[in-house]
């Protein structure tokens, strides 16, 4: 019984490892969007403990929205922990911030600080 359990886990781990390759590919994507041109590009998604795109370049004044697709809560917090700080976003919850000043904004998930990404405002 127990042995069966273990074998089954190993099987699903292999499938998940295959998905990991896909996850890495998405995580490495760098996006550029401008307000009004491609509204979908102004959304940053959280999947598998990663922000995508990992780098988003937008013009000043752009509102960026994060949406969490994981079944674990995440947060969106600027590196200085002051510029912007979302509450915990549960599954499918969103958080938005409008970037007024040009600059590079590195941010992370304060629950899983290994999750980092940035928004470049031009």
């Amino acid at each position: 019984m127990q042995r069966n359990t273990r074998v089954s886990i190993a099987g699903s781990a292999t499938r998940m490892a295959a998905l990991a390759v896909l996850g890495l590919a998405l995580g490495g994507f760098t996006g550029t969007a401008s307000a009004g041109e491609n509204p979908a590009g102004l959304q940053i998604t959280i999947d598998n403990f990663s922000f995508a795109p990992a780098t988003l370049t937008v013009p000043a004044g752009t509102k960026v929205t994060w949406v969490n697709h994981d079944d674990i809560p995440h947060t969106v917090v600027s590196e200085d922990k002051a510029t912007f700080k979302s509450p915990a976003l549960d599954t499918d919850e969103k958080f938005s911030f409008t970037f007024v000043k040009p600059g590079t904004y590195t941010y992370f998930c304060s629950i899983h600080p290994k999750m980092t990404a940035k928004v470049i405002v031009q």
Partner: peptide
Amino acid sequence: QPKPGAAPSPGPMKVPAEQLRSL
């Protein structure tokens, strides 16, 4: 949760209900 590196992320591991409690 999955074994280190065995999944794309450390998110909750979904296992059949009858196996859950053994984990």
